[in-house]
Nucleic acid binder design. Structure first.
Lengths: 201, 201
DNA sequence: GAGTTTGTCAAGCGTTTGGTTGATTAGCTC
DNA sequence: GAGCTAATCAACCAAACGCTTGACAAACTC
């Protein structure tokens, strides 16, 4: 006995362009993260999103345009997960945990890097976030170690932090551990933070 | 006036299976390194090798088989570039230089990692090489830092060493430098070695 | 030198791919 | 409620893809 709906609730709408757009972007992120640009299939993205394939062309400019839009949104989203206030090593531990528990962002960044050809959608937002990290390193480590280039160190730590996601086969071979096992993830994050702590001294 | 060739020199042979096989493997390495597995084109590999496309199926088991064979050979090849005897930091500096000046191996490893699904051709050879690095870290760093996991540290340093190749867009955005510029490469390798030296103390 | 094996090639086959066309209908305006 | 706009769909298309077929010629065997 459904009562008469006076004003249709927003989520009951059958057509909602903004929601559809976002569903496509989310599905694209999942598919591209899993298979990379060349390996991703737009049919699969449409299926994941639960929409007709043509909508991908309707809202975005083909596969390339969708990849760009998705990458840009992810870049801006990731730029918000900075949590200042704590020490560098603690911040790095959380950053590593976040990365390893939500590998999609790391994988999108890694795929993008391997096919980098000069343009980097969403790069400004990410660079801005990383620039804050560089400052922090310059303050907490650079003072006593003037020979260290803070930007290089940040990149090293960043790459180190993402290693279990980007090189799982190396982890599996060398550590004989599943790179996604929560126990290993905790251990690894602790180790990354430990190295930073050694450098803080 | 070409003289009569009594015994045809080996390099004059029109058909040389072993050489053809290797030409295909080299071309495959270049193509896969540049575009990844899904992005690589069989026709392009055949063109690069200067042979008919069908030979790729004749010598290897399709695209997958070729990728496996190529990856395996590269793994074994890379396992030979270890140069013991020097200090860890110096060894790391050379390893970084080698990696950044010959990005193909790094890129193949990176593509492979992102599509890792449990099997890792050529992984044993690489693991064996890395295991020696772990021992070296355990000796030179682990003595005074029992809380450091040598295997994790090696993976971090390895990932850090390859970062300019795997994440060139981040370098470009943060360092405002071309990741392949020889001057930057030298600087970065020096920085990687520097971190290792700080930990050796 | 005849005969067999094997390395190489040109052409094509079936499938999948990214993209498009034209129709359909929900939701808005008045 | 008529009319219009914009969101959505089913079906299709040309091109590119990985792979195979069948012919043939270099190299080996005796």
């Amino acid at each position: 006995m459904p009562g008469p709906r006076r004003s249709p609730k927003p989520q009951e709408r059958q057509r909602d362009p903004e929601r559809t757009r976002q569903k496509i972007l989310d599905a694209a992120a999942a598919e591209f993260a899993q298979h990379g640009y060349a390996g991703a299939r737009i049919r699969a993205i449409a299926e994941r999103a639960g929409v007709n394939q043509q909508l991908l062309s309707y809202y975005f400019d083909g596969k390339q345009g969708l990849f760009r839009a998705m990458t840009e949104q992810w870049g801006q989203r990731q730029a918000e997960i900075s949590e200042p206030g704590t020490s560098l090593s603690e911040q790095l531990r959380r950053y590593t945990l976040e990365n390893l528990n939500n590998p999609d962002g790391v994988r999108i960044l890694a795929w993008s890097g391997l096919q980098y050809d000069g343009e980097d959608p969403g790069g400004e937002a990410r660079t801005a976030m990383l620039a804050r990290g560089v400052e922090q390193i310059a303050e907490q480590i650079g003072r006593d170690n003037p020979d260290i280039d803070p930007a290089c160190l940040l990149i090293m730590l960043m790459a180190a932090s993402m290693a279990p996601t980007t090189m799982p086969q190396v982890i599996a071979g060398l550590c004989r551990a599943d790179p996604r096992d929560p126990e290993f993830v905790d251990h690894y994050a602790e180790q990354v933070a430990l190295i930073a702590r050694k450098l803080e001294e």
